[in-house]
Amino acid sequence: MTVDQEAPARRSAAPERHRVRRVLARPEIGALVGALVVFAFFATLSEVFRGPAGIANWLDPASTLGIMAVAVALLMIGGEFDLSTGVMTGSTAIVTGLVATRLGWNVWLAIAVSLVFAVAVGFLNGYLVMRTGLPSFIITLGSFLMLQGLNLGVTKLITGTVLIRGLADVPGYHSASMVFASTVSLFGGAFRVSILWWIGLTALAVYVLRRTAFGNWVFSVGGDVRAARNVGVPVVRTKITLFVTTAVAAWLVGTMTILRLTSIQANSGIGQELIYIVAAVIGGCLLTGGYGSAAGATLGALIFGMVSQGIVYVGWDADWFKFFLGAMLLLAVLTNQFVRRYAEEAGK
């Protein structure tokens, strides 16, 4: 009988609690809290970290990582992995470098050739995954290893070394560099233009994911591919588009890298693919697909940037960085699991 007396009171409290749960249930909430904590931590310990120069400094690695993490998050929400993203930032830069320095083509043209190459690799990854029905983990592990071999083999074959250099002497370099690799001075900090790209692409990804039909399809193909197919979602097209998106993101980051350095190492980008995935997971993506956030992935990248530079600013050994990153990942996964369970109880 006590239950009956409590019922009306509980019902009136329900919408309030429901809203709180809904905010907590947002996939990026863990990453947001994490980013604030990390910022507060390093900002109190180091004055440089919170100054304009420091901010410009940690936003730089966050930006290139963030561009990749956002694309990887979309793909993971769509229920797939891509292990070839890291090596692709190298491969696309190598294609640009070789076409520009060896064939002497205009840098813009070389970048365009590289873009075509990226779209082709992304399409091939997606096509193979969809056609064979094999896990994308295996298919893209294959393309990762093949590209790694190609990067080294082709670079050595053509240049005789493992380095492609001399991009600054090719026509079109300066204008391309303006677009992809310039810096803007603001309040005494030298901010990379890649930060603008990062913010713009994050906004675009958030918009596409939440406000377009395509975004709806992305969630559905990752959440329950059979159901999606049953109601007429173009599953194959959606997933292949996502693979092409990660490849194109890698092309953008590769282009930024080579224009910044005017040279590129044959082993550039290798090992980064897991860090992109880590950023996406810290940002709230489920490994099983169907759930996650583009803004979250960007926050995950921001945490990464702050930690990698913050450790240097407070004078710690940089060796601790990976430990810290691993701990963040574990914490994020546990938080996500807890929050999701809490949120799901709201419906019962």
């Binding site: 709806n216 159901a227 109601v231 979602v233």
Partner: peptide, 23 residues
Amino acid sequence: YQDLAMVPLMPVWRNFFLGSEPT
């Protein structure tokens, strides 16, 4: 069908219009 053609993690309204989204 019995398997319902619905995605559990997606909101009701997104499921309702999945594949035929109003734009």
